[in-house]
Structures are given as C-alpha cells and as structure tokens.
Amino acid sequence: MTAMNLSLSFRSPEASLFHRRYSSPIKHLQKQQVPNLLSFPKLQFPVPKTQFRVTARKGSAIEGLSQEMNTIASQNLDHAPARRRVRSAFIDLHKQLDHCLFKMDHAGIRTEEWYGRNSRGMEIFCKSWLPKPGDQIKAGLCFCHGYGSTCTFFFEGIARRIAQSGYAVYAVDYPGFGLSEGLHGFIPDFDELVDDVIEQFTSIKGRSEVKGLPFFIMGESMGGAVTLKIHLKEPHEWDGVILVSPMCKIADDVMPPAIVLKLLAFMSEVLPEAKLFPQKEIAHLSYRELGKRKTAGYNVISYKDQMRSRTAVELLKATSDIEMQLDKVSSPLLILHGEADKVTDPLVSQLLYEKSSSKDKTLKLYQDGYHCILQGEPDDTIFTVLDDIVTWLDSRCFRN
C-alpha cells in the first residue's frame, strides 16, 4: 500500500478529484498512451471476507457555525436519509450565505423537486428551475454536477440565472451523491451511472413545459465526463454540449504507473467500497477567492471523504474511454476553462477542441481563472462566464 499512497493523488474536492502539478497552458500537450484497466489480467488472490465499518466523518469544523450545526454536518452521511436530513437543516442557512450566487435576485423563478426512480428501483433526486410565469421557454438545459458537488447549493444560483434568461433548467444527483439513494461517493460502474442520468433526462424531455423544444446538456468537472459519455451514447439526442472545466483525460503527471493500476484494479474487486486513498485538500486550487472557498464548505452533503477504490478505477476507465473517442464528439460544443486551473488541465480542453469532429465549436479560456470558474472567482468573472453560456445558448436557439 505504500507504493500506492506515493503514486496516487486522488481526493474529493468540491468540484473535481485529480490534483496535478501546474503546467502553463501555453506549452504543447504531449501524447501519452493511457493504460486500459480492462486489459489488465486479473490477479489471483483469495478474497478475504472483510466487512468495513463506516464511521462518522471527522472533517474540520465549519468556521462561524454553531457547535450544534457542526455536529449535524459531521454525522455519517453514507446513506440518503441522513443526507436529506442534513440538507433540510441547512437549507435556510444557505440562503443567507455571502456569495453572489446566493444573493442574486431572481424573483418569480419556479422551482420543483421530486424523486424519480432508475431501472434498479433507486430514488434519484431531480430539480427544475423554470422562467417566470408568462415568459416563453426557449429550450431545456440538463446539468451534470462534479464529483465533490451536488445539483443544489452553488448550482441553485447558476440555474436561476440561466432560467431568468428563458431556459428550463434541470439537474439530478447521481446515485450515491447529494440527495439520491446509494452509498455516498460510490461509483460501482461509471457507464451504469451514465445510463441512470440518461433515464432521468429522457423522462424530463417529455415534460409538458419543454416537450418538442431544443435540449442542451451541460457538465462541470467530472460532470463533463458524464456529459461526454451521454453524448457519445446518444450523439443525435442533444442540440449542444457545454463543458465547464471538464475532466475528460487524466493529466499525464498524475497517471499512476501500470503496476499501481493493476493493484488498484485488484483492490477495487476485493474491497470496492473501502475508502483507501488519502485525502488531500485542494480547495485553494479550486477557488481563487478565499471567501468563496470558505462558502464551499457549507455544501455539507457533498462527498468529502477519501475516495473509494472502485470509484477510482471507474473514473480512470471513463476518462481513458473518453480520451480514445474525442474525435467522435460531434455536437455543437462550448468549452469553458480557467487558464490557471491546476485541477483539470486547460490543455486537455484545447485537445478536445482540436480533435472533436464538431463543425460548431467554441473554446473560451479565462485569464487567471482557477478550477471553479462558476463559483470561486471574483463576481465579475462568474457573471462573465454565466453570460457567455447564455449568449451561446441564445445564438443556437435563434440561429434558424
């Protein structure tokens, strides 16, 4: 295990999971053959009958929060009922947070929350944000959240801003994330997760308020990988794809050696739910402004524990698969990335832009921008990114 700890740098920040050493977005991105975990021969070891006991999280106390609320936030969140209780306890407090996404006035925006069910019978949390009554809906936008995030909290403000511009916005929490059922932070099969999201979005497209309208899909960080997999599975079902700081290739300088990948693959079979990977705090790399970095800590139901072994393998598989299919990305495409992002590489977004077969593609890089360009930047940068998204959507809706 020592070799694995020295070679891997996985953790679960607010919006992503792979920490890389920073490289200038100006230098050339070199090609590297990414090992395929599926091609590794299975190692023959006896599987121990070990059952891991899950304990309450022992994260740092949230600054400025009462002891009672910190106690609520630090309870065991492995299962959905606990996450739902904690979210209910914090929902009024969230509205008072000093962040532009919580302070914007979007009076009249209609919201709805419900639980859909996937084909395996799991409850999946869904939410919609619709324009004010009487305002025409231009199109629908479905959102895929990041690994250490949820479809509520920060996205509430993002969704309201886009809905105010005439779009019906929809989002879901993946199984095991946010308010949906499933073991917290556990991805047993990335393609299965993608299929779960497709199920819910397919149902959403049939809702009366948006039936027959154009539909776009947007993903942030790991949600970018989910979005790309959805597009690759159903390339003709979306009118456009928006990617924000997408995780679509593991940066070369954090790709573990082949021997470590083999060990990781074995551990994911033996102890798939075990939290094996050391947590490394990289919020300072995700949020440029200190105040907004502190605000992120109030998203108390986001996954902040060490990464589970199967989850790590599934994310590696997913990004490896995406990297081999970048040329198959054919939808109208908008990619948004901070030039100073040290979590996901802006050079990879440049590579996606160059290799995709889309004839309608735009890459926007934001000077000095960190990973969370929609949450952690100065207010004017956040509003610029939001305006760029709405402008791009408007131009595709009214092009004909």
Rank of each mutant, 00 (worst) to 15 (best):
A89G: 05
S66V: 05
I91G: 07
A80F: 04
A56V: 04
P81N: 01
P81T: 00
I26H: 03
P46L: 00
Q96P: 01
K95P: 07
R84E: 01
V86K: 02
F52C: 12
F40C: 09
I72G: 01
I91N: 05
Q33Y: 15
T71N: 14
L43D: 01
P35Q: 15
P46K: 06
G64H: 01
P81K: 01
V86E: 00
L93M: 08
A89R: 01
D92T: 05
G64P: 09
A80Q: 06
Q32F: 06
A89W: 00
H79A: 15
T55K: 05
I72H: 11
A61Y: 09
F90H: 00
L97C: 02
Q30C: 12
H28N: 03
L29C: 09
R87F: 01
P81Q: 03
A56D: 05
K27P: 14
T55I: 07
R57L: 03
H28D: 11
K31F: 05
S39D: 00
R53T: 04
K95M: 14
L97K: 03
S39R: 03
N36Q: 04
R84C: 09
T50I: 08
R53H: 15
A73D: 07
Q44L: 06
D92K: 06
I26R: 05
L43P: 11
Q32N: 10
L77W: 01
A61D: 12
K27F: 12
K42G: 06
K42D: 11
V86C: 13
E68Y: 10
Q44H: 02
R83A: 15
R83E: 10
L65V: 10
Q96N: 15
L43M: 12
S88D: 04
H79Q: 13
A82W: 07
F45I: 02
V47S: 08
H79D: 11
T50V: 14
R84Y: 03
R87G: 10
E68Q: 14
L65S: 03
M69R: 13
V47K: 02
H94G: 09
R87P: 12
N76D: 14
A61F: 09
A82K: 09
E63T: 05
A73C: 02
Q44D: 13
L65F: 07
S66A: 13
G64C: 08
Q30A: 15
L38P: 10
L38Q: 13
E68S: 02
S88I: 07
D92R: 12
Q32V: 15
I72V: 13
N70Q: 08
S74I: 04
Q75A: 15
T50E: 06
N70L: 02
V47N: 13
R84T: 00
T50K: 07
V54G: 04
R53K: 12
I26S: 11
T55S: 10
R83L: 02
